[in-house]
């Protein structure tokens, strides 16, 4: 049994056994959940299909959320990608479009997969689905990489938090980016240790990020933070695949995230009392919506 106390331990164990992290996590979870590996793979495939459907519908939709605060931005981004007018190249801009798309579907009460939360649901699928398209990966490969994402996510949830109310946005969009980065590294043939470094890079880049949703809704700034979270994951994966290493070991980064989350004032942890939620514009929006 894996205790999910340390990402380094997961990476070490995978290296020693000559396996990928996803294989270890799948084997362990099949034992833990008393189901076959095939059954778990099929369950995960179902989640991937929901993710892909959300991305697809969000990219074409122009409908607004119930509050009227969000909607249609993914479509704008997608038009830039399809028109070949992207500033940063296809992989990044397509990833951004999908992250916005899925987060907008979430805001409009569409069906998504919490990954790890509803507020951060666009990050992991945006990057993995884009890599699948651009690098011609198989569905099975992407399904397996979700076990790597989930395995690392379990360590983060256990040792720190994946909830904005507990740890701020670093714990939600930060954790999602870290999980996405590690999964992307594995998908692109990187080693378990590279996945661990990618996870560390993504978390380090957003340490201290607060959860300050305008009017308490999962829209502003959450939807755009899904896009920046997906970009963060791509940056982290790219660096790790280049062989760049994290000076601070990944488990210590998670420890730092926990300490920062604990120190963060309550006003900056999803209560909509501080940060962007406390700006004059946000307060005006809140008054109008909550009236």
């Amino acid at each position: 049994m894996i205790t999910y106390d340390s990402i380094q331990e997961l990476a070490d164990r995978a290296r020693k056994k000559g396996k990928r992290i996803s294989e270890l996590v799948l084997e362990d979870q099949a034992l833990h959940m008393e189901q076959s590996k095939d059954e778990l793979v099929e369950l995960m495939r179902k989640s991937l299909h929901v993710m892909a459907a959300a991305a697809k519908s969000g990219l074409t939709s122009r409908s607004l959320s119930a509050s009227g605060l969000s909607g249609g931005d993914a479509n704008k981004m997608k038009q830039v990608v399809d028109g070949g007018r992207s500033l940063s190249g296809k992989v990044l801009s397509e990833t951004l479009a999908k992250a916005l798309a899925i987060a907008e579907v979430n805001a409009c009460m569409g069906r998504i997969v919490a990954a790890p939360t509803a507020g951060s649901c666009g990050i992991i699928p945006a990057l993995l689905l884009t890599l699948k398209e651009e690098h011609h990966l198989t569905e099975d490969q992407v399904v397996m990489s979700l076990f790597t994402a989930a395995g690392l996510g379990m360590v983060i949830a256990k040792k720190a938090s994946i909830s904005g109310a507990e740890g701020g946005c670093q714990a939600e969009c930060g954790s999602a980016a870290a999980m996405a980065a590690a999964a992307a590294v594995e998908l692109m043939g990187g080693s378990p240790q590279m996945s661990a470094h990618a996870c560390a890079f993504a978390l380090k880049s957003v340490l201290g990020l607060v959860c300050d949703p305008v009017a308490g809704l999962v829209e502003v700034p959450c939807i755009k933070r899904n896009a920046s979270g997906a970009a963060n994951a791509l940056v982290a994966a790219e660096m790790a695949l280049a062989g760049i290493e994290s000076t601070i070991p990944v488990d210590e980064v998670i420890g730092a995230m926990k300490a920062i989350g604990d120190a963060m004032p309550k006003a900056l942890k999803e209560t909509a009392e501080g940060g962007l939620a406390d700006t004059p514009t946000a307060k005006k929006i809140a008054r109008e919506i909550l009236r």
């Binding site: 989640s47 929901v50 579907v105 997969v113 919490a114 990954a115 790890p116 992991i124 979700l146």
Partner: peptide, 8 residues
């Protein structure tokens, strides 16, 4: 962690 499948 990857789940649940839900409506937002």
């Amino acid at each position: 962690i990857i789940g649940p499948i839900m409506v937002g």
